[in-house]
């Protein structure tokens, strides 16, 4: 499979990958563990992540997935996607469609993704553009709550001690999970497009802004203790808002969010496809169908409150392992051997 991306397409692919599914739920856990300094902690975490981005931008050419590492990532991604799908249907069934059976919800998410994955690659590459439209809606809706903001909720930051900082940082990092996707997609960007420097900064800043906006607004709106109970604070804010024509804004947002999640799944499967079909393989379409069936089965069994909660609390672990440790190991290893993607692509394809 070969695609080539312009700069804007590259970032639009990454944007849903980073924010798509994490966005709805991450604030609660960051604030609950970071307490009042959560926003400060998140800024620090974002700066560190930005440094990591710069590092990856410098060294992406050494990131070659070998057989073993490909398999590891594929297993992780399958798990990740199943989790993503099951979490989505869990949220949809609690907020929007409590009576729709699980398998119907799963089909609702997976059929569009299957359709897009079987279509030409450009479709998956470009679909992220829709994302932007929703963000504008969303920001307007959230700012509706501005009347009830309590500005004292952000201070005093000194109440957060070492424990809060450590856990706050760990969970803040997990907002930026899927760092490996940056490395994987980076090599498909057309050679004459400039990424390093300003464009990268703008991209990371936009990500940061999106998260920061949500963290600040939810911590202004809820008192600290409420975050123990509320797992989707953004939805909850919208739930409590009433505008003249619509009483439940959260429903509208869940509607958009389902669309965004579908986009995320499509983009993620594109990444999976890029890695899997790097070598020419037979039965391309069958494999894609099979992959969706696998996700369906896994997600079907994950989707209950206790399991999801158990996984979500421990899910911070994926960022250090798959987002940092493994890529850095691969990069170092290839740097020592002096192999870059440019010579490996000649040999393997």
């Amino acid at each position: 499979m070969k695609i080539s991306l312009s700069r804007i397409q590259f970032f639009m692919l990454l944007f849903p990958l980073f924010t798509g599914f994490v966005y709805i739920s991450i604030q609660s856990i960051i604030i609950d563990s970071g307490k009042r300094a959560a926003w400060l902690i998140f800024i620090v975490a974002s700066i560190l992540v930005y440094l990591l981005f710069i590092l990856y931008e410098k060294t992406y050419k050494y990131f070659i997935l070998g057989k073993v590492s490909s398999v590891i990532y594929q297993i992780y991604w399958l798990f990740h996607l199943s989790l993503l799908v099951s979490y989505t249907i869990f949220v949809v069934s609690t907020w929007m469609s409590p009576n729709t059976p699980k398998y119907a919800l799963l089909l609702m998410l997976l059929i569009p993704s299957l359709y897009a994955s079987l279509s030409r690659a450009e479709t998956a590459v470009n679909i992220g553009a829709i994302f932007g439209t929703f963000i504008i809606f969303f920001i307007i809706f959230i700012l509706n709550a501005a009347d009830d903001f309590e500005y004292r909720n952000l201070v005093p930051t000194s109440e957060s001690g070492l424990k809060e900082w450590i856990w706050g940082l760990i969970y803040s990092f997990s907002a930026y999970r899927n760092m490996e996707c940056y490395l994987i997609l980076r090599k498909y960007v057309m050679k004459n497009e400039k990424i390093a420097g300003k464009p990268l900064f703008y991209f990371v800043f936009l990500l940061f802004f999106m998260y920061m906006f949500s963290i600040i607004t939810v911590s202004l709106y809820f008192s600290l203790d409420e975050f123990r109970f509320i797992s989707e604070p953004l939805l909850y804010i919208l739930h409590t808002q009433e505008v003249t024509f619509i009483k439940r804004l959260d429903l509208i947002f869940v509607f958009f969010w389902v669309l965004i999640t579908i986009i995320t799944i499509i983009n993620f499967i594109l990444v999976v496809k890029l890695v899997h079909f790097k070598k020419k393989r037979k039965y391309t379409k069958m494999r894609i169908v099979l992959y969706h069936i696998l996700i369906f089965i896994f997600a079907y069994y994950f989707a209950n409150f206790a399991d999801l909660q158990w996984i979500r609390v421990r899910y911070w672990i994926t960022f250090p392992i798959f987002g940092v440790l493994l890529p850095i190991m691969i990069i170092t290893w290839n740097k020592v051997r002096g192999r870059t993607i440019f010579d490996s692509s000649n040999s393997s394809s």
């Binding site: 009830d148 809820f222 008192s223 600290l224 409420e226």
Partner: peptide, 13 residues
């Protein structure tokens, strides 16, 4: 105070 802000206040020390 609405139901929601009541809850927020109850949880604020």
């Amino acid at each position: 105070y609405t139901l929601q802000t009541t809850g927020a206040t109850l949880n604020s020390k």
